[in-house]
């Protein structure tokens, strides 16, 4: 999705300064400075037929200096632009968390971030408006801890030079740590199935590497999670793209990814041990029924079934049928049904 070259840095920097120029011109002509970005809610994402992913729709919201909060947002944006432009010029990088703490050092109180969500969101805003990804701003997230395990042989650009790594033989029990910018990886060979451990809602790097594994190595991607609404969202962001970063869906989403389970149907079929749905589970399911990404017959059936039975199950509940049940029975059956094996 990006490569770290001096040309790319200069380009990214120019995009940022162009944005500042725009504000400057608005001020100079006596207008109210403002920034228009797509509305980042689930009601404003739509399916892109060409790319097979969900992207932002046409609804825009305008952040204008007419209100105190709008002015404050713009001020923070300009401070962030200043910081990022400087960082690119000096060829340094920082993490999102560092940006948040760094703002504490800015002399103007109004420019400081209230919390990290605010700074994270602001960086995403700048990505959207400038068309440059945050990786190209040299902004890293904190390590998500997601790992990969399997007979994959790859070459990674590290600060200590190129390394060739086999993701089963050269790694410990924990597996291969997915780096923040997986685009510095070159795949050399892969002989069998791989496991990508998502560690909850997958980070961008996790989704990006998954997409590349599919696109470049032609590996089928299946997602195996718990049987609850939060897990369906994990699948959603792998396959369809997340709402927060729909502007990057093209790079991050793997539309061909399939959902294995646990499906609500499985809970019934295998009579799995369950927990009752909590109120927030029910709300989440209902909200998914309205989520454009889940508007398929399959999902509607599954979600309605789950609301109907009022139960959810963990992946591990399959162990109630014996420890080998997953590998010997469940997965072969499901993957067979899905036409993967």
């Amino acid at each position: 999705m990006s490569t770290d070259t001096p040309e790319a840095d200069a380009e990214a920097r120019e995009q940022l300064i162009d944005l500042a120029e725009e504000f400057y011109d608005q001020f100079a002509s006596g207008e109210v400075p403002r920034m228009t970005i797509p509305t980042r809610t689930k009601s404003n994402i739509e399916y892109d037929e060409d790319k097979n992913v969900w992207v932002y729709g046409d609804r825009k919201s305008t952040r204008s200096a007419k209100s105190v909060s709008g002015a404050q947002k713009l001020l923070k944006s300009i401070y962030a632009i200043d910081f990022l432009a400087r960082q690119l010029k000096e060829n340094r990088s920082s993490t999102l968390r560092e940006l948040y703490y760094l703002s504490e050092s800015w002399d103007l109180d109004e420019a400081q971030f209230n919390d990290q969500d605010e700074s994270n969101q602001l960086v995403e805003d700048l990505e959207i408006v400038s068309g440059v990804t945050r990786e190209d701003f040299h902004m890293r997230p904190e390590e998500s801890g997601a790992t990969l395990m399997g007979p994959l042989y790859l070459r990674e650009q590290t600060r200590r030079g190129e390394r060739e790594i086999h993701c089963q033989e050269d790694v410990g029990e924990g597996g291969y740590q997915i780096p923040n910018n997986p685009d510095t990886i070159e795949f050399l060979d892969c002989s069998d199935a791989l496991i990508v451990h998502l560690k909850g809602q997958p980070a961008r790097a996790t989704r990006r590497i998954t997409k590349r594994l599919h696109d470049e190595l032609d590996l089928p991607v299946v997602v195996f999670t718990d049987g609850d609404p939060w897990s369906y969202r994990i699948y959603g962001s792998v396959a369809y793209g997340s709402i927060k970063s729909a502007h990057l869906s093209e790079y991050l989403a793997t539309p061909e990814a399939d959902f294995v389970g646990i499906q609500p149907e499985d809970i019934v079929e295998y009579d799995l041990p369950t927990d009752p749905l909590s109120d927030s589970d029910v709300n989440a399911l209902e909200s998914e029924l309205e989520d454009p990404r889940f508007q398929t017959d399959y999902w509607r059936e599954q979600i309605e079934l789950q609301l109907d039975i009022g139960k959810k199950a963990e992946q591990q509940s399959l162990a109630s049928r014996g420890l080998d049940f997953v590998t010997d029975t469940y997965l072969p059956e499901r993957l067979g049904e899905m036409g993967v094996v």
Partner: peptide, 20 residues
Amino acid sequence: KQDKLATILPEMAEKLADVT
């Protein structure tokens, strides 16, 4: 609001002149 904006906007303008 005016007071607040009167502090924010000049700072913004200054920063913009600086960045650009």
